[in-house]
Amino acid sequence: MKEPSSDPHLAFTRQFVTALPALHGFVFSLVHDTHATDDLMQDLAERMWLKFADYDESRPFVAWGIGFARLLVMEWRRKQRRAPLPLDEATLELLAEEAAEQCQGYDERIDALRKCLGQLNDRQRAVLHLRYQEERPVKSIAQQWNRTQMAVYKMLKHVHLTLLDCISQSHPRTAP
């Protein structure tokens, strides 16, 4: 529900910032590229702001935003000569429907993730730091640690699956 406010800018900001993680999750799950997701999030914010006067307060803001995000992602995919995952449009539509459903419990899952992160050891946190905070490619991490690319990949995969299992135990319907 849109919070009552005489200032539409402030009302939009409150709603958008609250919805941002879920919308980011939705877009990323279909685009699979961090920088492309960032660019699309800017376009999304702009489109939603321009249509904010038409927003029906009886609808959840995230669901309203996902409608825009879905169109943006489809437009983006059509322009890509080489997407990270070569999905046809019908499959992408199915994936978008499922992603929209998954976004509904996004806040709970991120809370679960934060708890699960506390169970990782220092080495596992370090690899997440290098990969996601410093945005280093797997190859670069392997060079720094004097390991093979495969070894770093396996380590990251193990961390991912450990986190997925942990989250799914907190929220039995699904992992994130």
């Binding site: 999750g25 799950s29 997701t37 992603a99 998954q102 899952r109 993730l113 996601y132 991912h160 986190l163």
Partner: peptide, 8 residues
């Protein structure tokens, strides 16, 4: 994919 996005 969502886990990856959340980690980002």
């Amino acid at each position: 994919a969502m886990l990856h996005g959340m980690l980002v």
